[in-house]
C-alpha cells in the first residue's frame, strides 16, 4: 500500500547522505537499497531492533511476519511497542511505528506464523530475509529458502546474556552444516530470561549485515558465526566450513540467481 504523505516528508536523498559518504558505498547501490524487499520473520526483540534501523536507513520495503499479539512482558526489549499496543497484532503495531519513523517506507504484514504451508509464498520476491524467530522449526524453513534460492538469510538468536549471528548466502555453508536441524530446539526466554540490549544488539548486527549485503560493501558474516557473551564481555567469530555431507546444502546446485 502507498505510504501516507507526511507534512514533514523529505527526500530520501537527505536520509542517505551519511551513507553516500561511506567508503565503498556507490551511488548505484543506493537505488538497490531503495528498491530492496526485505522480510523480517518474527517481530520480537530481534525483529523490532532490525526493522527500526532498516526502515530508518532507507530500505525500500519491509515485510513483517508474526502471528502474535503484543504482551506486557515484551515491552522491556521490543522497543517499537508502546503500552497502548498491548493486545494488538505485533505486525500491525510495528508497521504503524515504522511508518511514523519513515512515511516513505513500504510495509506489508503477514499476521501468521511462518510454517510448512505458507513459507514459499510469504518469502517469494524478497531479496533478503532476517530471522527474528524464537523457535527452531521455522528457522529450518528459512535455511531451506536460503539454500534453494541462494539469497541471503541473516540468522540470529539471543537468550540470557548471549547472542549469535550467522549469514547464509549462496546456499553454503548453511545453518544445518553448523547446528544440524534446530526444529526440536525449545528455548524460552520466559525460563532463561534475556537482557534487552543483548537481543537488541543481535538485531542491530543483523541490520548491519543486511545493509552490507544490500550495498555490497565490506565482508559480511557469510559462513562466519558471530558470538557475543555480554556476561563476560567477550566476542568471538568462528569460521564455519561447509559440511560436504550436509543433507540440506550438500547437494545444492552451484549456480544461483540473485
Amino acid at each position: 500500500m502507498e505510504a501516507p504523505q507526511s507534512p514533514w516528508a523529505f527526500s530520501d536523498k537527505e536520509r542517505v547522505r551519511r551513507l553516500v559518504a561511506l567508503p565503498g558505498v556507490r551511488r548505484e547501490s543506493l537505488s538497490k537499497l531503495a528498491s530492496a524487499r526485505v522480510a523480517i520473520v518474527g517481530v520480537g526483540g530481534l525483529g523490532n531492533a532490525s526493522a527500526l534501523y532498516l526502515a530508518a536507513q532507507g530500505v525500500g520495503h519491509l515485510t513483517l511476519v508474526d502471528g502474535d499479539a503484543v504482551a506486557q512482558h515484551n515491552l522491556g526489549r521490543q522497543i517499537l511497542f508502546r503500552p497502548e499496543d498491548v493486545g494488538r497484532l505485533k505486525v500491525e503495531a510495528a508497521a504503524e511505528a515504522l511508518r511514523r519513523l519513515r512515511p516513505e517506507l513500504g510495509v506489508s504484514t503477514v499476521a501468521a506464523p511462518l510454517g510448512e504451508s505458507n513459507w514459499r509464498a510469504v518469502l517469494a520476491n524478497h531479496d533478503l530475509v532476517l530471522d527474528g524467530l524464537d523457535q527452531g522449526l521455522p528457522r529450518d524453513l528459512l535455511n531451506r529458502w536460503a539454500v534453494e534460492t541462494g539469497r541471503p538469510v541473516v540468522f540470529a538468536g539471543a537468550i540470557g546474556y548471549e547472542a549469535q549471528v550467522f549469514v547464509v548466502q549462496g546456499g553454503r555453508p548453511c545453518l544445518h552444516c553448523l547446528f544440524g536441524s534446530v526444529a526440536e530446539v525449545a528455548e524460552d526466554c520466559a525460563v532463561t530470561g534475556v537482557l534487552g540490549p543483548v537481543v537488541g544488539m543481535a538485531g542491530l548486527v543483523q541490520a548491519q549485515e543486511a545493509l552490507k549485503l544490500l550495498l555490497q560493501v565490506g565482508r559480511p558474516l557469510v559462513g562466519r558465526l558471530w558470538l557475543w557473551d555480554a556476561f563476560s564481555g567477550s566476542t568471538r567469530i568462528l569460521e564455519v566450513p561447509a559440511r560436504p555431507d550436509c543433507p540440506v546444502c550438500g547437494a545444492a546446485p552451484t549456480a544461483h540467481k540473485g
Binding site: G42, G44, G45, L46, G47, D131, G132, L133, D134, Q135, G136, R139, A156, G157, A158, I159, E162, A163, Q164, F179, V182, V185, E187, D188, C189, T192, V194, V199, L225, L227, L238
Partner: peptide, 10 residues
C-alpha cells in the same frame, strides 16, 4: 575444539 550451543531466542 569449538563447542557452541545454538542460541534460539528472539
Amino acid at each position: 575444539l569449538e563447542i557452541v550451543r545454538f542460541v534460539g531466542g528472539g
